[in-house]
């Protein structure tokens, strides 16, 4: 109840939550919302403008692309893939980054400096560049895209978790547990992990937003998934930008609004959970 109240007080957070709920809702119920099959090619209806312009047809709300596919339906379906990519790649990043941060911070010494060299190496390469290089050898499918975005964004977790663990392990109860001979893995998962959880949540929220943008950027560079994602609709539509501007414009707006919602929500979460972290 306290949370709901806090949410209602912060208008910004509320807007963020509403956008995210809408986004999730469309992703889940996509098949029920769409007026057309998003993959249905209808060459007779190609390049129709949005409904409010001359020549627009009533069932094609946002117009059609050059193959006569309904842009609105494609964007609605695209939300599924964008959400999947956003959430799953964050899971991958977390699964790599959190253990690395825990181990590195907890054990210190040689393990720490070795892991941190790897982290340093990756910081030195812009994540989009890393993703490009990796995707060069993997077929860009949904799974590989998720994997690649995850792999190129795990360091944020590793660094934050490590620095928090460094200070946490000086606390009395951790030291006490150590002297009592509690297993290291137990200390890490039961004593340290819960305490870094709020930071992890904050990073994850922002990361979902960046992952959605990264996916669209990769699509733009011709290395996106073959499935219908906002990025791939946008990138297919860009060549027709000046004639059929609606094909590339609306998925761009969809990305921007969704990412905006996630950022707003993330800001609010940070204020509520952990005022210290500035991402």
């Amino acid at each position: 109840m306290k949370w709901v109240k806090m949410l209602l007080v912060s208008k910004v957070g509320l807007i963020g939550v509403i956008i995210i709920i809408l986004f999730t809702f469309t992703a889940i119920f996509a098949p029920l919302i769409v007026p057309h099959d998003p993959t249905e090619v209808n060459l007779g209806k190609s390049s129709l403008p949005p409904i409010w312009l001359d020549g627009g047809e009533s069932t094609y709300l946002l117009g059609t692309d050059n193959l006569g596919r309904d842009v609105f339906s494609r964007i609605i379906y695209g939300s599924q893939i964008s959400m999947l990519v956003g959430v799953c790649s964050v899971l991958v990043a977390g699964l790599i980054g959190i253990p690395v941060g825990l181990i590195s911070g907890y054990y210190g010494g040689l393990v720490d400096s070795l892991l941190m060299r790897i982290v340093d190496s990756q910081i030195a390469i812009p994540s989009i560049l890393l993703a490009l290089v990796i995707l060069g050898f993997m077929n860009p499918t949904l799974l590989t895209i998720i994997f690649v975005i995850g792999v190129s964004s795990w360091i944020a977790y590793a660094r934050v978790v490590r620095s928090e663990v460094l200070s946490l392990k000086e606390r009395e109860y951790v030291k006490a547990a150590k002297t009592m001979g509690v297993r290291h893995s137990f200390i890490m998962t039961r004593h340290l992990l819960p305490n870094v959880f709020s930071s992890i949540i904050v990073i994850s929220t922002i990361n979902v937003a960046t992952s959605i943008i990264t996916e669209s950027s990769l699509s733009f560079l011709g290395l996106g998934p073959q499935s219908i994602s906002w990025g791939s609709i946008l990138s297919e539509g860009r060549d027709y930008l000046a004639t059929n501007w609606w094909v590339a414009t609306f998925p761009g707006i969809a990305i921007t609004v969704t990412v905006l919602g996630i950022i707003l929500f993330g800001d609010w979460l940070r204020d509520v959970l952990d005022p210290r972290t500035e991402v």
Partner: peptide, 22 residues
């Protein structure tokens, strides 16, 4: 400024070209 962060930059570039150049 949040909007600026939320926009994919290539999309922004495309829109700028459409408006200012074309």
């Amino acid at each position: 400024s949040i909007l600026g962060k939320a926009m994919p930059n290539f999309w922004l570039g495309m829109m700028l070209v459409l408006l200012f150049s074309v």
